[in-house]
């Protein structure tokens, strides 16, 4: 009986191993290559950031426009919706249960620290990130990267750096915009429903719930989301030669990996908040 159980457990372990080991190895390989790509990009940023500025700076501005300014309407809509759905109802509920004093803490913990950066990052990923993978993947498949190299232009400097910098600045800016709009709309909704607090009292409560550490951590977190999204996108679009058929698959992989990477970074920041 014991030997049957042992044989069964061994075969089960083997089956599980056979199924998950290749996926695990592939994930580790991807992680290693992504880390190498990140280091190369950081090296390029360190050594060449100020170089060729008349070509690179307009590209950064274009990226900020594409992944930031053009997303203002959709982020505005999301901000208004979140204001009504989350902030407005939270204020309402906290009043009903007589816990209005904790409204600021709840909004800071759930919305300002978590929901706003993730929402801004995911909007940038969905609206611009996917299109960028397709654009870069197609450029790679059609040999435009080799054309840049033939011209003595470093593709990391010309294609990757402006995108990573642009995405980083855009996610930071969109997060701030989303926060302000959500809180504003949330207050208006709650006011319309009979909230007795003045704007000064409401925003003062939120400011009191914020600590000084929130500002650098939020900047690092939102910037980190933008940088991760930019790096993963550029890695999948450019790091290896693609055929046109592979561009679609690369896009799907990019979205999944960006979401996982942002959530992992988020977990790291939760730990930092707990320590701080």
């Amino acid at each position: 009986m014991e030997s049957i159980t042992t044989t069964f457990s061994r075969s089960a372990v083997r089956r599980v191993g056979n199924r998950f080991a290749p996926a695990l190895i592939e994930a580790l390989e991807t992680l290693t290559r992504l880390a190498a790509f990140t280091l190369i990009t950081l090296g390029t940023a360190w050594t060449r950031f100020g170089q060729n500025s008349r070509v690179i700076r307009p590209r950064i501005v274009d990226e900020i426009h594409r992944s930031g300014v053009r997303l203002l309407p959709i982020v505005g809509f999301l901000g208004a919706a979140l204001g009504v759905v989350f902030v407005g109802q939270t204020i309402d509920l906290m009043q009903q249960v007589g816990a209005s004093g904790f409204t600021g803490t709840l909004i800071v913990t759930v919305f300002i620290r978590e929901l706003a950066p993730l929402t801004a990052g995911l909007v940038v990923l969905a609206r611009v990130g996917t299109a960028t993978v397709i654009e870069l993947g197609t450029a790679r498949a059609l040999g435009e990267v080799e054309a840049l190299e033939a011209l003595g232009i470093d593709p990391i400097h010309y294609l990757v750096l402006p995108r990573v910098v642009g995405f980083t600045i855009s996610v930071i800016s969109l997060t701030v915009y989303l926060m302000l709009l959500t809180l504003g709309c949330g207050y208006l909704f709650a006011f319309a429903r009979g909230l007795r607090e003045t704007p000064g009292e409401f925003f003062g409560g939120i400011a009191a719930a914020l600590s000084w550490i929130d500002f650098p951590l939020l900047a690092l977190k939102t910037g980190g989301f933008g940088a991760i999204i930019g790096l993963v996108i550029c890695y999948h679009g450019l790091a290896r030669p693609l055929t046109l058929e592979e561009v679609g698959q690369a896009t799907t992989r990019t979205v999944a990996q960006c979401v996982v990477a942002c959530l992992l970074l988020d977990a790291v920041f939760i730990l930092l908040y707990l320590i701080a």
Partner: peptide
């Protein structure tokens, strides 16, 4: 060295004709 690729020459579709030609000149001379 300059390299002319086969076919349509692998031009950059997001840039216009002048920007395509001027890109290496502007990049290397800032």
């Amino acid at each position: 060295l300059g390299l002319l690729f086969d076919g349509n020459g692998r031009l950059f579709p997001s840039l216009n004709v002048f920007e395509n030609i001027a890109l290496p000149w502007c990049y290397h001379r800032n």
